[in-house]
Write a protein that binds this DNA or RNA. Structure first.
Length: 572
RNA sequence: GCGCCCGUAGAUCAACUGGAUAGAUCGCAUGGCUACGAACCAUGAGGUUGGGGGUUCGAAUCCUCCCGGGCGUACCA
């Protein structure tokens, strides 16, 4: 939090010279190069330019008005007008001492807790979850954890696709082509087969399409037989979703599928038409956005020409429900980037429908998964890889690795470690990139066990734990100060101080890869420290200080990993 | 056609939203376990950031024009 102190004082110094200045962009950030210092600001140059001042002279004046002697060495003006701050060891020591006493862990929680609704995962009933679902599931869960860590209230909602036109075809398939044995063996695969079968039959034969429409109408009219089949399809699907979520250790506060809002859809359409927001077009009800450049040519449809509502309508009802139920300050949708237009329409439409709403509506989108040819991802046989197969493969590879590295451990232990490492590797691989970049799927990349990967972080953690196991019963007092005599200690300590800043960035921009980078660097700094600074063999104060550094690094690592949804292990 | 996103080392990705010498990892080469776990550490090679032009103290990032790719573009969600 030192960084925020510096920033506040810097802003005050600027204001003392320029009372009318907007200092919100006067930020202090970590230096790109340690040789320049620990923190820097580049904001003075822009400010000077806008006010037609010489940037170096302005920087000099700011430095004169700035008092940071308690935590920094004399501030340095560099290049065209950077300010470089170098922390005093006593300031670092002070932060470490209070953390070692358990007063904080280098971050602080929000003074005003916000309520955030996060909508993620949202698989469709009767379809197996495949690798495409993992990004939303893992990203959403991680964001929820990050908001919670910083003291916010989060409601997670799995908006599963359990209603809609696909059920007409599924019902035809179920009634005419169901293979009970296949259903018992792998329900989702069988339902997917039925859907594909009827779907292609519909393309060729108008009569099949008619039957599908009739079955759908019957379902929507409450026909007992169709409702029963529908419920069974949902139960079978939910069972398999839960199995995946269990393995991923992902949870939801709510699972309100599309069907939950079914009774409200007609009312929504009536309100929109009644108030003149929606109008008729080619038999459908649509909303035009002539006031918005980006949406001008893209009206949103809220009712199809056959009278049925569609997903925009459902999403409107969902937003209404969320606002009523939780009064969130923000609703976050985690989906792939192809739905950007839909959410632009939805947000604009909701604001027109309920102009008084105060929710920030945020579409957190992510890039596509591509095959090695750069085209949307499929295996050679044209199938998308099933999520359960991916998890199995990850655990198997991790098991082979742990068996090779630690053959002395029992098989049960190795299985458990392989589970933590394998699942962790997948999650980390998914979270460590910029979410908006498309990424190329490859088994070796996703399940890698060396380099910038989960096992690297977990290994650093096990080394820390190993040190504390060797202490056995020995009681350790938190040190009264840190002398930080070796460069590796300083680098590790300074990095610990930045934890809070990174967490803020993660929730501000909904980008968990900042946390991945931070933890990877932390593990790296710990690695150098570990190789160069004996802990147990050190003596007196130094030993106590190094033990405390190890403990703090371990706690930050564990907290960070848990925020990413990764479990830790004591040995591997 | 229109709109959005993208092109960075042999490969996979970063780059704190305009900052200082574009960083990692894999792979490749070299060195290090009689100091706490070598799933580690240290060192090296590898780049005209797709291409041209522009904006300015400063550009992978902003503007513009080409080249190449992905996605979307009213009755799927």
């Amino acid at each position: 939090m030192i960084q925020l102190t510096l920033q506040e004082r810097l802003q005050q110094a600027v204001l003392s010279l320029m009372p009318a200045a907007d200092v919100s962009s006067v930020l202090v950030r970590p230096c790109p190069e340690p040789k320049f210092g620990d923190y820097q600001t580049n904001a003075l140059m822009g400010l000077a330019k806008r006010n037609q001042l010489n940037p170096r002279e302005f920087a000099t004046q700011v430095v004169e008005a700035l008092d940071v002697d308690d935590c920094c060495e004399p501030v340095e003006i560099a290049g065209p007008g950077f300010l470089n701050f170098r922390l005093k060891t006593v300031a670092i020591s002070h932060a470490l001492v209070s953390a070692a006493k358990g007063e904080h862990l280098f971050y602080r929680t929000a003074e005003v807790a916000r309520t955030i609704v996060i909508d993620y995962s949202s698989p469709n009933v009767a379809k197996p979850m495949h690798v495409g679902h993992i990004r939303s599931t893992i990203l959403g869960y991680t964001l929820a954890q990050a908001f919670r860590l910083l003291g916010h209230k989060v409601v997670t909602d799995n908006h599963i696709g359990d209603w809609g036109t696909q059920f007409g075809k599924l019902l035809v398939g179920w009634k005419e082509h169901l293979d009970q044995d296949a259903l018992a063996a792998d329900a989702l695969a069988e339902m997917e087969r039925l859907y594909k079968l009827v779907n292609s039959a519909c393309d060729e034969d108008e009569a099949v399409l008619d039957r599908a429409r009739q079955e759908l109408v019957r379902l929507q009219d409450g026909d007992e037989e169709n409702l029963g089949i529908w419920r069974e399809m949902i139960d079978l699907s939910r069972h398999q979703f839960d199995e995946i979520y269990g393995r991923l250790k992902v949870e939801f506060d709510e699972t309100l599928g599309e069907s939950f809002y079914n009774d409200r859809l007609k009312g929504v359409v009536d309100e929109l038409t009644g108030s003149g927001i929606a109008e008729d077009s080619e038999g459908a009800k649509v909303v035009y956005f002539n006031d918005q450049k980006a949406l001008k040519k893209h009206p949103a449809m809220v009712q199809k020409s056959d009278g049925a509502a569609n997903y925009t309508t459902t999403d409107l009802a969902t937003l209404e429900h969320r606002e009523k139920s939780w009064q969130p300050s923000e609703v976050i949708y985690v989906t792939d980037g192809r739905q950007q237009l839909h959410f632009q329409q939805l947000f604009a439409l909701y604001t027109r429908w309920k102009p008084q709403h105060a929710m920030k509506l945020n579409h957190v989108w992510f890039g596509a998964i591509l095959g090695e040819d750069g085209r949307p991802f499929k295996t050679r046989s044209g199938e998308i890889i099933r999520l359960s197969d991916l998890l199995n493969e990850a655990e198997q590879r991790a098991f082979d690795a742990v068996t090779e590295k630690s053959p002395d451990l029992s098989e049960d232990d190795r299985r458990e470690i392989a589970r933590v490492v394998g699942i962790g590797a997948i999650k980390y691989a998914d979270l460590s990139g910029n979410r908006q970049s498309d990424y190329v799927f490859s088994w070796d990349n996703m399940l890698a066990l060396v380099g910038n990967t989960a096992p690297y972080l977990l290994y650093a953690y096990t080394r820390i734990r190993s040190i504390f196991r060797k202490l056995e019963g020995e009681s350790i007092e938190p040190p009264a100060s840190f002398s930080l005599g070796q460069a590796e200690e300083v680098a590790l300590a300074k990095h610990l101080l930045r934890f809070g800043l990174v967490l803020e960035q993660v929730i501000d921009e909904c980008r968990p890869n900042f946390l991945c980078n931070y933890l990877y660097e932390l593990a790296g700094f710990f690695g150098s420290f570990y190789e160069n600074c004996p802990v147990l063999l050190a003596e007196g104060e130094v030993r106590a200080q190094r033990l405390a550094l190890c403990d703090l690094a371990g706690r930050v690592l564990k907290t960070g990993l848990e925020t990413l949804g990764l479990e830790t292990t004591e040995r591997m």
